[in-house]
Amino acid sequence: MQQPSFLDELEAEAIFVIREAYAQFERPTILFSGGKDSIVVSHLAQKAFAPAGIPFALVHVDTGHNFPETLEFRDRYVKQIGAELIVGSVQDSIDRGTAQEEQGPLGNRNRIQSVTLIETIDRERIDCLMGGGRRDEEKARAKERFFSHRDAFGQWDPKNQRPELWNLFNGAKQPGEHFRVFPISNWTEMNVWHYIRREGIELPSLYFAAPRQVIWRSGSWLPVSDFISLRAGEVPTTKTIRFRTLGDITITGGIESEAASLDAVIAEVETLRQTERGNREDDKRSESSMEERKKQGYF
């Protein structure tokens, strides 16, 4: 008999966690960004319940500043897997006055996404959001649980986390509280890519190199879009780039690359010696910026 591979083991663990979320919560959902990690979680969720259909709605927090490709992919994907789609709109939160746009040249909508997310959780009575967060992404996430408890304000208290022993996950909660669940906690970026290749999972075209209109800002190539205003000295040029993560288009920088196929991307990722969040401007603000945002309810 063939020895199960490391990917098989990671898959088995993730499927177990997803099934636990389904068993322990009333309204479990998947937080879907259109990025590769949330696509992998959705794929695993399909596998966990086959031959039954995927029993989770996909929740998308729409900052209004999207890559057009992300929205196209999202709508096609949801139809293909037969899942319900729930959209929380950051623009609606701003219009309602519950969220305020950040001012200044570095202002973006990353931080106020948390407001929209919590509003969506309340509106839809969601008690569990599964996400593609991984412990290898960032040092604050290294201490994250599979089942991460959030209070009624959506806040994470790193000093008061529930111990997780063996594979016993505790989803007990008070009314108004919810859980974030991270089935691929133990995966690394490389594992995710290898799994995508093995399973033949389709990704948005943004992950693959193509000529794109960009400007050079804060050490990476930022795509030109209707949502950014050029600063003094910034001149749009066309570069062959691809994106390592997908987020708000105003802050997601790309890297110069010729990797236009999955195999080429994997070969490139294997040799890259920079973490993938390195091109996200939001993490660079301070040494503990991820931790601060997590405490406030960021995923």
Binding site: A142, K143, P158, K159, S185, N186, T188
Partner: peptide, 10 residues
């Protein structure tokens, strides 16, 4: 160090 932190290497 006050909690369990998970590290990955290969």
């Amino acid at each position: 160090t006050i909690d369990v932190a998970y590290r990955y290497f290969a």
